[in-house]
Design a protein around this nucleic acid. Structure first.
Lengths: 238, 238
DNA sequence: GTTCTGAATTGATACATATCAATACACAGA
DNA sequence: TCTGTGTATTGATATGTATCAATTCAGAAC
């Protein structure tokens, strides 16, 4: 998760996240007080856009399957992917009325669409929901700042190591194998996320491979052989 | 501002920002319902730290004077400044319990300290305050994502142009001269913000100068001679 | 005024990553 | 199985920025 689970619910002691109100996608209904709102799902093919920059922000989206890439572009075509959203993550939640970047499915994906009006209602009627949103945004800001450190100050090898480590840590949080990393995106998308070229990403993956830190089970499946060496590289060689 | 002024107050039609509740620093009192909370000011010398990474987040800070730089570091000393906070800006507002970066005064500065407990109270008692915080964080996230685009995909010259343009636009918003830019920070700090070295920053400022786009009134005072050329450069040469 | 000191600028060179180009690979369709 | 096509890898070279080094500049202290 991206992640909305930091606001502590004082009564139960469990972490109250945005998903506690929005559900996990099993049900198409969201309970608000004693009324319900119905949500609908949307399926996206690879490369299909969920929204484009400037589009009206009519909904929040909860990722159910697949990965969505959020990106900005320069007029000459240079692209910077600012986030990858994974299942469980929520896109949106700020109060901007229009999207300020593009959102594209990097593989086949499914999202649940939650009307912005529902969110507005939840904020006023459900105590704690606004807090959970705040928490989610704070986490997202924090992760974006980490990415600034990568882009501004790390070498290509360190960037790639950091990227892999981030996936590993997500796996750990989600309870899946932290040493087996599935890369649902292409090298070009990793490059646009790390501020590198395809070739440099490829060369540095190869370097990690020949060093014995990782093994390439396939082009999109990496197994980590030495996680502490990977961490050392990611955190700046010291 | 950084900026908390996007939530629209439906009754007055004016932009409701966090500062509407926290005041502008003239008064040391914050009204909450019919009770008051007293805040205190803190003065910082150049290079003095407001907080360090890991410190307990006991307060929010409202910048009254000067500029505060927020930064992350790698163990070997490489530094990335993630934001500059200016007068009117609020530092904090997420719900993290500890600071995840360092905050240092880049020149003599003054801040107002607002206890975290006061913020918690305001969220529950003052309708709209939570929304304003949400709005502030969303704006901050958006600006950080713009910076990702700069760091990941722009050339040194474009980065410097973007940096200057950002100051110009802040001036415009604040109602001061958009063509006259005061740089309260040193070249080293600009470099650590843009992911460059001091020398590269200096060379590119010189380049903008010899091109006639800017004029250096002094080392820390820039006047913009051709703002549309500066914009063209900043947005990626097209 | 002179001297001192940190900061900024400028120059020469090194180096990391981009660019251009050529395979190699893997999977889909015939 | 073969062929076609998009993707990844690898190689050779170019280039932008970092690094190392030397002035220059501006303000503070005397």
């Amino acid at each position: 998760m991206n992640n909305a689970q930091l606001a502590i619910d004082n009564e139960t002691g469990h972490a109250a996240g945005v998903n506690d109100w929005l559900g996990n996608g099993q049900s198409a209904q969201i309970k608000m007080g004693n009324s319900f709102t119905t949500t609908n799902e949307r399926t996206l093919d690879v490369h299909e856009h969920l929204f484009m920059i400037g589009d009206k922000q009519t909904h929040l989206y909860q990722i159910l399957e697949g990965v969505i890439g959020i990106y900005k572009m320069l007029p000459d075509g240079r692209r910077q992917i600012v986030t990858f959203y994974y299942p469980g993550d929520i896109i949106g939640g700020g109060d901007k009325s229009n999207w300020t970047q593009h959102a594209e499915a990097l593989c086949n994906a499914k999202v649940r669409c939650i009307p912005a009006s529902t969110v507005d209602t939840l904020i006023t009627t459900e105590p704690g929901f606004g807090q959970a949103l705040l928490s989610m945004l704070a986490t997202e800001l924090e992760e974006t700042r980490d990415q600034l450190l990568s882009l501004g100050r790390k070498s290509a090898l360190e960037k790639v190591a950091t990227f892999l480590l981030r996936i590993s840590r997500r796996n750990k949080r989600e309870g899946t194998e932290e040493g087996l990393l599935h890369l649902p995106m292409k090298r070009a998308e990793i490059a646009d996320y790390l501020g590198l070229t395809i070739e440099t990403v490829s060369r540095n993956i190869t370097k990690l491979k020949t060093t014995g830190i990782i093994r390439l089970e396939s082009k999109s499946l990496v197994s980590v052989k030495d996680i502490s060496l990977l961490e050392e590289l990611a955190d700046g060689g010291c």
